[in-house]
């Protein structure tokens, strides 16, 4: 009894709203926010879902069924066919050839472009010389020039160098067109390193390369990863340079994929096409899902370019 009276006196002292404000589980605003996000998510997820389910059906099921419905019977045959049997022109050894071509293009291109861009960015941030900023600004503006205008002269240059139609030529082209964004990325990163560190190293007698290798490199691992993400996805996804500067035997995966899917000969095998498409998208997708925040950082770095 005393307890009850005690409560009433406490209530009498604190009238009106007290304590946490009661919340409604579903407010109108929340309904709108989550509703919109979920509907939009469907739009973004749908193609991935369709790719996956189509690639796991056999052709009979594809023909009669609904493209959104999950496979009644899962088959990996389309994947096998896409990888090792699908035809482009006279070759029928599947996408695997394109995959390995892309790998062979990717590794030297990424290494070369990152090496060149990191050294350029380092020079631009710490060892400015008369005119270095001018070249850098031209480089940045160059990023906005449509590639089409440079396509043919580069063909001539590569032919003169004896690199036309070869892996080396394509690697060089990837290095060139990867330069603006990656140089900017490295320049901005190295500029954010305190100038005094650079001065201290100079007092300690370190020169251009010693400061780069001993001081700067060890502290810029994250930016190398960001740059690598940009380059790996960019080069893997390239279509135009691959088709212009290489020849069918060394076409990268994207070009080969397009040739397989859009070839006019034979019966369209949609399940194989989707398996091939997924296979081609797999490398950048894996990188995207693994790198997470760093991928976003690479994008933000790209945005600074503007």
């Amino acid at each position: 009894m005393t307890r009850v009276s005690h409560l009433t006196t406490a209530d009498a002292q604190l009238q009106g709203p007290k304590g946490p404000k009661p919340k409604r589980a579903f407010s109108g605003a929340n309904l709108f926010i989550y509703g919109t996000l979920i509907v939009m998510s469907l739009y973004y997820l749908l193609p991935l879902w369709v790719m996956i389910v189509t690639s796991l059906k056999d052709m009979a099921e594809v023909r009669m069924g609904n493209i959104f419905s999950p496979p009644a019977e899962i088959t990996f045959q389309p994947w096998v066919k896409a990888w090792s049997e699908a035809c482009t022109g006279i070759n029928c050894d599947g996408l695997s050839r394109g995959f390995w071509n892309s790998v062979r293009i990717l590794i030297p291109s990424v290494l070369l472009s990152i090496t060149v861009a990191s050294v350029s960015g380092y020079g631009l941030s710490m060892w400015k010389f008369k005119g270095s900023e001018v070249f850098f600004n031209i480089l940045l503006l160059g990023a906005f020039i449509p590639y089409q205008i440079m396509l043919y002269p580069i063909v001539i240059i590569l032919r003169e160098l004896g690199l036309m139609g070869s892996l080396g030529g394509l690697v060089l082209v990837h290095m060139i067109f990867g330069m603006p964004i990656n140089t900017l990325l490295f320049r901005n990163y190295f500029s954010s390193i305190p100038q005094e560190l650079f001065k201290a190293a100079r007092v300690d007698g370190a020169g251009f390369w010693a400061i780069f290798f001993k001081i700067m490199l060890p502290m810029s691992l994250p930016i190398f990863v960001v740059s690598m993400i940009i380059q790996v996805t960019g080069i893997w996804n390239d279509f135009l340079f691959g088709v212009v500067y290489t020849k069918p035997a060394i076409y990268p995966m994207t070009v080969q994929l397009n040739n397989i899917v859009n070839s006019v000969q034979g019966v369209k095998e949609y399940n194989v096409n989707m398996a091939a498409t997924l296979l081609t998208g797999l490398v950048p997708l894996v990188i995207y899902f693994i790198s997470g925040k760093l991928f976003v950082r690479g994008i933000a770095a790209g945005a600074v370019k503007g």
Binding site: N237, V261, N273, T280, P284, L285, F289, I299
Partner: peptide, 29 residues
């Protein structure tokens, strides 16, 4: 949500074009 909205950006235009070619296919899509 962010991961879902951004993943297509990792894919190439070729892949994008082919998927949507399939989804917009009037016979099956």
């Amino acid at each position: 949500f962010r991961t879902i909205f951004l993943y297509p950006f990792a894919l190439s235009f070729v892949v994008t074009g082919l998927v949507w070619q399939w989804i917009l296919n009037p016979e099956f899509g």
